[in-house]
Design a binder for these strands. Structure first.
Length: 876
RNA sequence: GCGAGAGUGGCGGAAUGGCAGACGCGCAAGACUUAGGAUCUUGUGGGUAACCUCGUGGGGGUUCAAGUCCCCCCUCUCGCACCA
């Protein structure tokens, strides 16, 4: 017999066989319950990495397990194929993004097939193909009609040297430079205002927030992030009239969550971008200084600008407002920390009770007035060294006119009501969530289907003219505001309204649009009439289990929820939420190696002498660095291709499921991989060694319930119970596999203890059943090996089509209980009693145990605890 | 700063309030072998000859019983980061 099984041959054989049989093609079926298992589809970057291996192994086990449990399972796969890297490849290597993407998809698909994943490839999607992205355009047009898509001016990162727009991740921080720099040329990036398209996700803010309460099977951290991102806060908008009316401006409206502190508002601040600034300063002596400040602040990129540790800066506008409650005249400033996009873009500043205002007031010598006293009454107005923000709401209003003496919550309410009664403002809700800017000045994305007509203005492309195809005649230079503007053929169009000449929108959509509804498209991927077939969606939605990286915890999942609600309102689906269960798998990490001369080094470029790892280049000692996420730069990558060559897909799958629970980080270990390979080989040898035993089941005539049979049955059903429980309870693959390993260890022991030539007929049948069960339980994890051995055992229909073994509690009943005995909570002995013994019998047996007698001798027995059938505790 | 999560052998990790360390790696000894980086067997938290004893980041508490529940503290990781 061969020492190790031939994983290469076996895996290729079964992959071909499954494909030929169309084993994983799925249709709607009303006779069995449906199950929709989905893993986040990959960006076709070129090669799959271990993170992919992990996430797709997880999804595949779930899909195969649920199939065996009797569900008809939708398990599709596709490609998130639009995006920046394809365009960068075009600029750097001159390969067209389409070709680059196609080649990558072809290679990665081969790699995924090699992992033995049970996808219905008939449903494959590719978001960069017109038959997909035309529906992005279709949805976009519907959203325009609903007022959910609109245009407004917004800032982009602009590299003056490349003359191009940069994505946030293309803006890098550089020491000593105030603001980010271009990733390619290192010029300082600045902000440039362009007209851009937005989705009004804020219209669904409250529903998205409320919906979180339904998502009880989502990971708590993900829900927390969603809620925080939506960021609802209740407050009051209040007008502060100007001391001198200027032009059309009579008042400045602010938003505050702390109306109770309004008597302490000693100045106001505007966001630098606020149009009010220019209106206020016109003609004032301060105007020039203000303009200089505004310009300096607003050219900074967002990340730098909003860094929390950034120094608070501002400038006085020269204008004053009236605090409506105190009638005092207070100065209006412009401050770098005030956000234009949030609230009204203006704040009332209460330095005594807001730390930011406090720091600002200290710096510019603005009065600080205490209006909330703490419960102890110990705050001294002139001696504050920080704002008193008191989050517990235990303070009392002071220096607040007729409101003095109220507790903070009462003060909030009373002042809010007073504001509304006086007509100074309204109680209101604000969200942190902003509208979703989807315009990208890029080529490799969905063209936004809008036209600019000289006569009619902004005109949507008619639905029957979709798709607006990406042009092929685009030079990839990395320069220019937008590649589509460089196409000679693309921009020129005819206005569908007046027939005159029109210019096409040259922006493309954010690729998050593509992934916001692809799970709906999988339900009816070939429908040519609509993005989603409502009947198909009705059948399959919602996704029962979604698996993917935690990095998508906020944006992707939020946008997908938003789109689901929009498409629901369009009548394409009836579900409110797209994903019932979400599993966020951890990163795949590996040790790093550092040589002081050669920096990060590959494990294969090191040698080991006397337990010390040395650099293969210079022989210097290697420092073992932190265990980090696999990355090329740290040289701590393991390759899925090599892994499959050497150990096979089954080993790759088993290791990535065994080494850690799915939601935690998984530390890659070459020796750990070997351990899993050994395990699979043990299974292979076990089945082959026992084949003669089960081969002639019918030959022997004797039959009786034997010790061996009991043992086999107990081990088998105990394992069924454990593996099923681990899978049903949060997909604890690691412990499920551990249970299978124990089971194999037990079977080896039974094989050794009961030689083959002594076996009775029922014992042979017991072995057959035990081995069959082993293979069935192993099938979701190591499908190729299980399938091969299933055939070896003489079965003719695919193991993937078999039913999951059923746990029978009768087989795990024992005739004896082994009960640990404690004295004062410490383990002192163990006793064996017949199963079913009464409490008194067990305690009597425990008391007569020799060791226990020693411990309790001469002591007063104060209490006896008996937990059937687990434990006895004598308290003395 | 705010929010979330995590600290258990040499390592990855197991433990519905009930025998801490399952399973795997590594290590040690042995068997088989021309050989073994194959395979198999046995052992493997610390201290101790043993009986025992100590032990789940630290300190308190609840309980007959705490890795698990409660309070305080420390460390680490992740997310958000001036949202008024």
């Amino acid at each position: 017999m061969a020492q190790t099984y031939d994983h290469q041959a076996i895996e290729a054989k079964w992959q071909a066989s499954w494909e030929e049989a169309g084993l994983f093609k799925i249709k709607e079926d009303s006779t069995t319950p449906k199950y929709y298992c989905l893993e986040m589809f990959p960006y076709p970057s070129g090669r799959i990495h271990m993170g992919h291996v992990r996430v797709y192994a997880i999804g595949d086990v779930i899909a195969r397990y649920k199939t065996m449990r009797g569900f008809h399972v939708l398990h599709p796969m596709g490609w998130d194929a639009f995006g920046l890297p394809a365009e960068n490849a075009a600029i750097e290597k001159g390969v067209h993004p389409k070709i680059w993407t196609q080649e990558n998809v072809a290679y990665m698909k081969k790699q995924l097939r090699r992992m033995g994943l049970s996808y219905d490839w008939d449903r494959e999607l590719n978001t960069s193909q017109p038959d997909y992205y035309r529906w992005n355009q279709w949805i976009f047009l519907k959203m325009v009609k609903q007022g959910l898509a609109y245009r407004k001016r917004s800032a982009v990162n602009w590299c003056p040297s490349c003359e191009t727009v940069l994505a946030n991740e293309q803006v890098l921080a550089r020491e000593g430079k105030d603001g980010g720099v271009c990733w390619r040329c290192e010029s300082v990036v600045f902000q440039k205002e362009l007209e851009q398209w937005f989705f009004r996700i804020t219209q669904y803010a409250q529903e998205l927030l409320d919906g979180c309460d339904q998502l009880t099977s989502w990971p708590a951290p993900v829900l927390a992030m969603q809620r925080h991102w939506i960021g609802r806060s209740q407050g009051v908008e209040i007008d502060f009239p100007l001391a001198d009316t200027r032009k059309d401006v009579t008042a400045i409206r602010i938003f505050t969550t702390r109306p109770d502190t309004i008597h302490g508002a000693t100045f106001m601040s505007l966001a630098p971008e606020s149009p009010l600034v220019e209106q206020l300063i016109e003609g004032l002596d301060e105007a020039d200084a203000v303009r200089t400040f505004v310009e300096r602040v607003s050219r900074l990129d967002k990340a730098t600008r909003t860094a929390a540790d950034r120094e608070k800066e501002g400038v006085f506008t020269g204008a004053y407002a009236i605090n409506p409650f105190t009638q005092e005249q207070i100065p209006i400033w412009v401050a770098n920390f005030v956000l234009y996009e949030y609230g009204t873009g203006a704040i009332m500043a209460v330095p005594a009770h807001d730390q930011r205002d406090f720091e600002f007031a200290k710096q510019y010598d603005i009065p600080i007035r205490l209006v909330i006293q703490n419960p102890d009454g110990t705050l001294v107005p002139d001696a504050l060294d920080a704002a008193y923000e008191e989050h517990v709401q235990a303070g009392v209003l002071v220096n607040s006119g007729s409101f003095s003496g109220l507790a903070v919550p009462d003060g909030k309410q009373a002042i809010g009501e007073h504001v509304e009664k006086q007509g100074w403002g309204t109680c209101t809700i604000n969200f942190r969530l902003r509208d979703w800017g989807i315009s990208r000045q890029r080529y490799w994305g969905t063209p936004i289907p809008m036209l600019y007509c000289e006569k009619c203005g902004l005109v949507p492309v008619p639905e029957n003219q979709l798709p607006v195809l990406l042009p092929e005649d685009v030079p990839f230079t990395g320069k220019g505001e937008s590649p589509l503007k460089e196409s000679p053929s693309f921009s020129k169009a005819t206005c569908p309204t007046c027939g005159g000449t029109a210019r096409r929108e040259s922006d493309t959509m954010d690729t998050f649009v593509d992934s916001s509804w692809y799970f709906l498209r999988y339900c009816s991927p070939q429908d040519t009439n609509q993005p989603v077939n409502p009947q198909a969606a009705q059948h399959w939605m919602a996704v029962d289990q979604y698996v993917g990286g935690i990095e998508h915890a906020v944006l992707h999942l939020l946008y997908a929820r938003f789109f689901t609600k929009v498409l629901r309102d369009l009548g394409l689906t009836t579900v409110d939420e797209p994903f019932v269960h979400v599993l966020t798998q951890g990163m795949v990490t590996k040790e790093t190696y550092w040589c002081e001369e050669h920096r990060w080094v590959l494990p294969s470029d090191t040698t080991t002498e006397h337990g010390q790892r040395l650099c293969g280049h210079c022989g210097k000692a290697i420092v073992t660095g932190r265990t980090e996420k696999m990355s090329k730069s740290k040289k701590n990558i393991a390759s899925p291709d090599e892994l499959c060559d050497r150990y096979g897909a089954d080993t790759a799958r088993v290791f990535s499921l065994f080494a850690a629970p799915p939601e935690k980080d998984l530390e890659w270990s070459d020796t750990g991989v070997e351990g899993c390979y050994r395990f699979l080989n043990r299974v292979w040898r076990l089945v082959h060694e026992q084949l003669p035993v089960i081969g002639n089941v019918n030959e022997s005539v004797e039959s009786k319930q034997s010790e061996l049979l009991t043992e086999l049955q107990r081990a088998t059903h105990h394992t069924i119970q454990r593996v099923t429980g681990d899978l049903d309870r949060d997909f604890q693959f690691n412990t499920a596999i551990a249970a299978l390993m124990e089971y194999v260890n037990q079977l080896y022991k039974l094989m050794k203890d009961y030689p083959a030539n002594t076996l009775l007929a029922d014992e042979r049948a017991g072995w057959q059943s035990a081995l069959d069960t082993l293979l069935l339980l192993l099938a979701p994890f190591a499908p190729h090996l299980a399938e091969e051995l299933w055939e070896t055992m003489g079965h003719t229909s695919s193991i993937a089509r078999q039913s999951w073994p059923v746990f029978n509690p009768e087989y795990v009943v024992t005739t004896e209980w082994t009960i640990p005995i404690q004295v004062n909570g410490k383990l002192r002995s163990k006793i064996c009693v017949p199963a079913g013994s009464t409490k008194d019998q067990v305690i009597a047996a425990a008391q007569s145990d020799a060791k226990i007698m020693e411990w309790v001798q001469g002591k007063t027995l104060r209490k006896v605890i008996y937990v059937e059938p687990k434990l006895v505790n004598f308290v003395i």
